[in-house]
């Protein structure tokens, strides 16, 4: 019988193959960006909570890890929809 760890591992493999399929589809735009954000968040949550066992850890340590994932997800969205803002903020002169 399949255990909890194996189910998490198989889910991670499944989400990875979904990402590979998206990569090969060659799409671009909001649907792809949001799909990528979803995949990053779901896969990172599975690794953080189930591989690293952070669901049993100190709330602050868990918050730091999820803060990192949230920051990356936010930056992916901003870099797609508001790249002009990033350009302005990072242009000298």
């Amino acid at each position: 019988m399949m255990g909890h760890t194996e189910k998490i591992w198989l889910s991670l493999l499944g989400f990875t193959l979904a990402g590979a399929w998206l990569a090969e589809s060659g799409q671009a735009g909001w649907p792809l960006t949001l799909a990528v954000v979803f995949l990053i968040c779901v896969k990172a949550t599975l690794v953080i909570d189930h591989y690293m066992e952070m669901r049993f850890a100190n709330t602050w340590i868990r918050a730091v890890l999820f803060g990192f994932v949230g920051m990356v997800a936010l930056l992916v969205i901003v870099s797609h929809g508001w790249s002009e803002l990033i350009r302005k903020l990072t242009t000298l002169g």
Binding site: Q27, V36, I48
Partner: peptide, 23 residues
């Protein structure tokens, strides 16, 4: 050591999305 290893996992999941999937 296991937690360090899983952290490299999390980072790679992001890197994979950046360079192979996102357009």
């Amino acid at each position: 050591a296991a937690v360090y290893w899983h952290t490299t996992d999390v980072l790679w999941l992001v890197i994979f999305s950046f360079f192979y999937v996102l357009r």
